[in-house]
Nucleic acid binder design. Structure first.
Length: 588
RNA sequence: GGGCGUGUGGCCCAGCCAGGACAGGGCGUCUGGCUUCGAACCAGACGAUCGGGGGUUCGAAUCCCCCCACGCCCGCCA
């Protein structure tokens, strides 16, 4: 999606270049990078926003044309500007600065947003193609820690982003409900557990058992052998093993569902690893037929040495399956079921090699969908500079974070807005806003150091700041109390603040697109911060005497024009927050 | 040892892929702004050898090379 303001500017500049340098444009085009087909698109791609906005709205640096035109950038700028309307284009040193007319912009942008509403920024480029997104995917029988939030928040946001662009998003929670850790849990439970204790506080109890097992395992390595033995029994359908596994799984699922309900997150499928148990042999057979399976130290592997990777382990020496085996089965299942255009795996970067291996195996099988598999990786959440580890018991429960944030939000509301109805509900929205934004406000590849101070901060570049701005906009709409009319006097839009808002509003669609291209919801988070900042500045601007210029005043025409802008900002902010999975309260 | 990632004011982060005008925000600190359109806000101040070195370029936080620090992964865990 192109920015129409930028496009118009590029077109005018291109015409001016042609007029100023007749006959030399061919030489210039020769030097263009291959991605720029013509002069217009070249200029379009080179346009930047001046650092000092007083200079203009767009700037074209003339350096890039200097070599082929054999002139100094400063002279080029002057010559080109001479061909253009003087009040809209100026040469500042080697830069050609363009200034847009605010009423024109308003006429273009505001009726569009008013008409499209929440659909503003939507596209159909997805053509309903299926994007399968694997996210959250916690290991059951373990508590839901803040570490799991990363995948959950990013994946859920990508789900909505792709849907907005016209793709058919399919959300899969690939629950970690199979594997040797269940052998461990079974051993631990049989040794130290009992049903009565389990029923009281299941997740906490299972978690304690898990930590205890790992502590004991360090002292007594026979426990590891027992665990493998019990996992093998589980795979072979041993009734006692299966009974305990189901017990753990059911308790865990109920627990996770509670968390997802709080977060307002749903999945289309909850197909965990165990779902693929009866599909493993088909995959193994396929791999064997392709001649990819070799034996190494008793285990069955795919040798990836020629590709600079460690071997991909398919089956242990005792015949039990492994992570990669189930992953492969999952990929085939997803392809056969959905015929996906892309399959995303929103999983931490620690598993980068695992996915490289698995994807390589698919490629070696000659499957046509090998290049549609994407590992959307992200950095770790650490606590006090340590990796959060369930095994070591160094973990913070997401629910504790939510509860603490809710308490703080409620306290602030009681203090600032004591008459607010449904306090608990709003406090929860604010808490979620703070927590989710703490994750989505940072580029995903960065490791995040969990800090209570940061998560509980509701000021500055935070989720509650965005929510507050949304509530403020909503308050204006309530106060205005009438339907917004799109037939306003656009010539009343003149201020730099209004221009900034219009420019920024228009960029929403491009931002969503960038976020999808890079699998990075953070672009939307940053966009919204900027939008809120620009609006709040507009909201609190003062006249020459230092008096606040109010949006709603007795001047009818001005008020109506500004309210059309207010509505547009609210629409985009609301929609942007939705894409991030952050609730947008009307009051707080 | 190999692979991947990160390193930007006291703290957190954007900018790097597609190199350009004095390196942008936020937190914290200091100053100013509510006789009510919501101060979870706004305005201003202080604060940076962009990890280090070399190279390419008219121009490097950004591209290339080397080095340093930290994190993660490297066969029967997931």
């Amino acid at each position: 999606m192109k920015n129409i303001f930028q496009e118009n500017t590029a077109r005018l500049l291109a015409e001016a270049f042609r007029a100023a340098y007749p006959g030399q444009i061919e030489a210039l085009i020769q030097t263009l990078p291959s991605n720029a087909a013509d002069l217009e698109s070249f200029i379009y791609s080179r346009l930047e926003v001046p650092k000092d906005r007083k200079l203009g709205d767009f700037a074209f640096p003339a350096f890039s044309a200097a070599a082929s035109l054999k002139e100094k950038p400063v002279e080029i700028a002057q010559k080109v500007v001479a061909q253009l309307t003087p009040d809209r284009f100026t040469a500042t040193g080697p830069y050609i600065n363009a200034t847009l007319a605010v009423p024109d912009m308003a006429r273009m942008v505001l009726p569009m947003i008013h008409g499209q509403g929440a659909a503003f920024g939507s596209q159909t480029i997805g053509q309903d193609r299926k994007i399968v997104i694997d996210y959250s995917s916690p290991n059951i029988a373990k508590p839901f820690g803040v570490g799991h939030l990363r995948s959950t928040a990013i994946g859920h946001s990508l789900y909505r982003i792709f849907a907005k662009l016209g793709y058919c998003s399919i959300g899969i929670n690939h629950l970690g409900d199979w594997g040797t850790q269940f052998g461990k849990m079974i051993v631990a439970y049989r040794k130290w557990g009992n049903d009565a204790e389990l029923a009281k506080e299941p997740i906490k109890y299972l978690y304690d058992l898990y930590v205890r097992f790992h502590q004991q395992e360090e002292l007594d390595s026979s426990l590891s052998d027992d665990a493998r033995l019990w996992f093998k029994k589980l795979e072979d359908g041993d009734p006692e093993a299966v009974r305990l596994w189901k017990l753990f799984r059911d308790y865990s699922q109920a627990e996770f569902q509670r968390i997802y309900d709080i977060l307002g997150i749903k999945f289309d499928y909850y197909t965990g690893e165990s779902f693929y148990n009866d599909r493993i042999e088909v995959v193994m057979e396929r791999l064997r037929r392709a001649g990819l399976v070799t034996e190494s130290q008793g285990a069955q592997v795919v040798d990836l040495e020629p590709y600079g990777m460690p071997a991909c382990l398919l089956k242990k020496a005792d015949g039990a399956t492994l992570y990669a085996t189930r992953e492969l089965a999952g990929i085939f299942y997803r392809y056969e079921t959905f015929d996906f255009y892309r399959a995303l795996y929103v999983v931490g970067s620690a598993q980068q090699e695992h996915f490289k291996q698995v994807f390589k195996v698919i490629e070696l099988l000659g499957e046509p969908f090998a290049d549609r598999l994407v590992h959307v990786e992200f950095g770790w959440i650490r606590f006090k500079d340590q990796a959060m580890s369930t095994r070591k018991g160094n973990i913070i429960f997401l629910e504790d974070v939510i509860t603490t944030a809710e308490e703080k939000a409620a306290q602030i509301i009681r203090d600032k807005n004591p008459d607010l109805p449904n306090l608990d509900q709003t406090a929860r929205m604010v808490a979620l806003g703070a927590i989710l934004f703490a994750d989505l406000g940072v580029k995903k590849h960065k490791d995040v150091n969990f800090s209570w101070e940061e998560v509980l901060n509701f000021e500055g570049e935070t989720g509650p700041y965005l929510q507050y701005t949304h509530a403020r906009l909503s308050a204006l709409m309530r106060r205005f109390g009438k339907p917004i009319d799109e037939t306003v006097d656009f010539n009343l839009f003149t201020s730099p603040e209004e221009k900034e808002l219009l420019l920024h509003l228009y960029r929403f669609g491009q931002t969503v697109e960038t976020a999808s291209d890079r699998y990075e919801p953070n672009y939307i988070a940053e966009y919204l911060l900027e939008l809120a900042v620009v609006f709040n500045r507009f909201y609190q601007r003062k006249d020459a005497h230092g008096k606040l210029i109010k949006i709603i005043s007795e001047r009818k025409n001005e008020t109506e024009a500004r309210m059309l802008l207010v509505e547009a900002v609210r629409t985009v902010l609301n929609e942007g927050l939705r894409l991030l999975g952050i609730p947008a309260p009307e009051e707080m």
